[in-house]
Write a protein that binds this DNA or RNA. Sequence first.
DNA 1: CGTGGGCATCAAGGTTTTGTCAAGATGGAC
DNA 2: GTCCATCTTGACAAAACCTTGATGCCCACG
Lengths: 232, 232
Amino acid sequence: MTEPLRIVIIEDEAAIRRFLRASMGPDEVEWFEAESGGEGTRLIAHKNPHLVLLDLGLPDQDGLEVLRSIREWSQVPVIVLTARGKERDKVLALDAGADDYVTKPFSIAELLARIRVALRHAARAMPATEAAYEAGGLSIDFDARQVFVDGEEVRLTPIEYRLLSELARHAGKVLTHRHLLRTVWGQAYEDSTHTLRVHMGSIRSKIESDAAYPRFIRTETGVGYRLIPEES
Amino acid sequence: MTEPLRIVIIEDEAAIRRFLRASMGPDEVEWFEAESGGEGTRLIAHKNPHLVLLDLGLPDQDGLEVLRSIREWSQVPVIVLTARGKERDKVLALDAGADDYVTKPFSIAELLARIRVALRHAARAMPATEAAYEAGGLSIDFDARQVFVDGEEVRLTPIEYRLLSELARHAGKVLTHRHLLRTVWGQAYEDSTHTLRVHMGSIRSKIESDAAYPRFIRTETGVGYRLIPEES
DNA sequence: CGTGGGCATCAAGGTTTTGTCAAGATGGAC
DNA sequence: GTCCATCTTGACAAAACCTTGATGCCCACG
């Protein structure tokens, strides 16, 4: 994983949040914490996390409802983390779309292992991520998070990098505006096409020398953008 | 799911095998039972199951070794089902590639729910790429949204592309003006045959070299258009 | 032999989509 | 708190695209 892992935790007890934070290095993981279901779903929509940890006993609404409303629009892996150990609760949560169910008190090593399993599944649902991309003068080192044009390093902002990476991971294919917005920004931004254009513009100004004849990124009018797989 | 679910269970206690068999209707599931690791891996290779239930305490070899050897060549979902409840065992199994870990004695309803989760994951891992079209010098790559004539790329506008795609999806068949207008423009435009003609003209000017002898798109007077499936 | 329907082509005009620039807004580092 | 990099938003310009009308061809039919 080249970019830091984004995890949303929806849990009203601060002690548990602190415990989890401490259990995983802060360098590897970017934590987003919510104390209520509403705040949690908002965070998921805005931060586009890789994983969600969800407590079922929340102050504002039942965790099961939160889970169902997330599943209406997002496929993000959700691990339910709760004190409710009844068989019925487990079955309901798993069938509502939870990817795993861990009962408190839990073993931290086991939870971490289950998180790895969930991330493994999510990674497999996407096309294989190579360690690097290289085509026609443009190369991306996903491990080092670096981009080069004809050997020269180009400095990209986080959003620019994620946009270009997404294009590179599907090099040659057209990615729709909606897809890019959902992948890079998250569900809540899927109509912000104008923002997308501005960012594409700034990527281009950094990697394209002649704006009239793009070497790398081609606009598919009315649809989206496409990374040109070979120089032509 | 039109074909029955195939599940391999690797477990030396016959009582548990019988119990699981009884828990799921025999009409929906085809069970394959193995009492040892070696037999189990052979069954997986031979039967290509949708899911594997694996006991860790086996007579011939350690279940963890079985799991690792399965993972060398197969991505089939594996749920570990065992009496070993130690944290260390769980972490080892999950990191070795297990998709879930259920400790005996287990609740059958929970196990079934976890099986459903595993199958859900497996179904999602399948890529959904649309095939390309290729006939007599004309090829369409639906992923890249690109059209080639004799290897040369041809750039089409959104409407042109959708028109040609619709023709290609029903290659050889006559599509009526009305059908094309409804599919590409929408119901409200189904009488704008003149607009349709102009667009067909511009597609032709891009993909046909000799307008008098069309290689690809044939006009069916009074009816509509047809894509010629083979060069003749 | 003339006429009209169906079709193809061309160019003009208007509309939608995209690109660019710059001004705030945001948020983290110090 | 200020500074700095980044992101979002708005206004406008540029480009791409679509529709429409005019015109001419071909051919069936009277």
